[in-house]
Amino acid sequence: MGAKLQVRLTDALNAQTVKAKVTATSWEQAVEVAGMVLVQANLVEPRYIDAMKKTLRKLGPYSVIAPGIAMPHARPEDGVIQTGFSLVTLVNPVTFGNAENDPVDILLAFSASDKERHITALKEISVFLSNDGLMRKVRTANSNDQLLDVIRDFERINN
């Protein structure tokens, strides 16, 4: 992957970037919350949120990558400050319009500053999101601390 520093998912998801049991009534609201977390962690400029929504409208809801799980994102030039991730869970699932994988109650949004730095984290995401036991815990976590406990569980399994 070259000499560029890789971001690890288990570092990127921390007290600043996870949010459990958010109330949202539409996919737009859910994406706004996941995007706001990135803004508040100083990973993206506010315009990145609109870019994520615009992308979803234009290219369709394919960012719902697995049953109940969406991975919204935009491009580096849409206001990325640095590569990072946010994990948001919803009280009530929302519909994105994806025939296979709706409705969604887990959002893993990301900002990529280039095409390399987030690759290690993407590999980790693939392992994390395909672990049904961990996803059950993510869905039942009632607080940010409980959500972080799941990340720590994953870190132990994955290392």
Binding site: Y62, S63, I65, M71, A112, H118, I119, L122, K123
Partner: peptide, 16 residues
């Protein structure tokens, strides 16, 4: 393939 070439298409590449 994916919409932007950063997320889904990368995930697919890594797994394949």
């Amino acid at each position: 393939l994916c919409g932007m070439g950063f997320g889904t298409s990368m995930l697919l590449k890594l797994t394949i």
